[in-house]
Amino acid sequence: MDKREIEVDIKVPNQTRYLSLIGRIGEDIAKELDKYSGDRETLAYHINLVLTEAMVNAIKHANAGDPDKTVHIFINITDNELFIRVYDNGQGFDINAIPPPDFTQLEDRGRGIFLIRSLMDFVSYRKVCDGNVLEMRKRLH
């Protein structure tokens, strides 16, 4: 591991009460990025948000709300890139089948993946051996 690299690997129960814990960890990591030239408060918020959205996605859609399952989050951050992986062990879904929100319609739902796609440079969701992983990358320069 590079000297300037930070890695966080955490597993939490499949419950929304842990959203604030994960979001807070994401914000604290953003504040450690000494070399980041942009607005660190905004970056902190964005990391908090994508982690929250990805975790909710895993809890509600992928793991179907089963509180006995776990969500596994892996964050890797260097001077150049933020890389987040959120693993679930549920049925999964087709991320490409999720349409962008229709701004002319006022829907209660359907903005989570849109927010992730808006704030990150690369997003994918694919099957792995015992579940699925949502991968998100953001360039920091």
């Binding site: 006022l106 829907e107 739902r109």
Partner: peptide, 16 residues
């Protein structure tokens, strides 16, 4: 200090 898509959705629901 923080709102996510569910928070926005709750307000949209209230608006409707």
């Amino acid at each position: 200090r923080f709102i996510d898509s569910s928070g926005l959705g709750a307000l949209v629901s209230g608006f409707k």
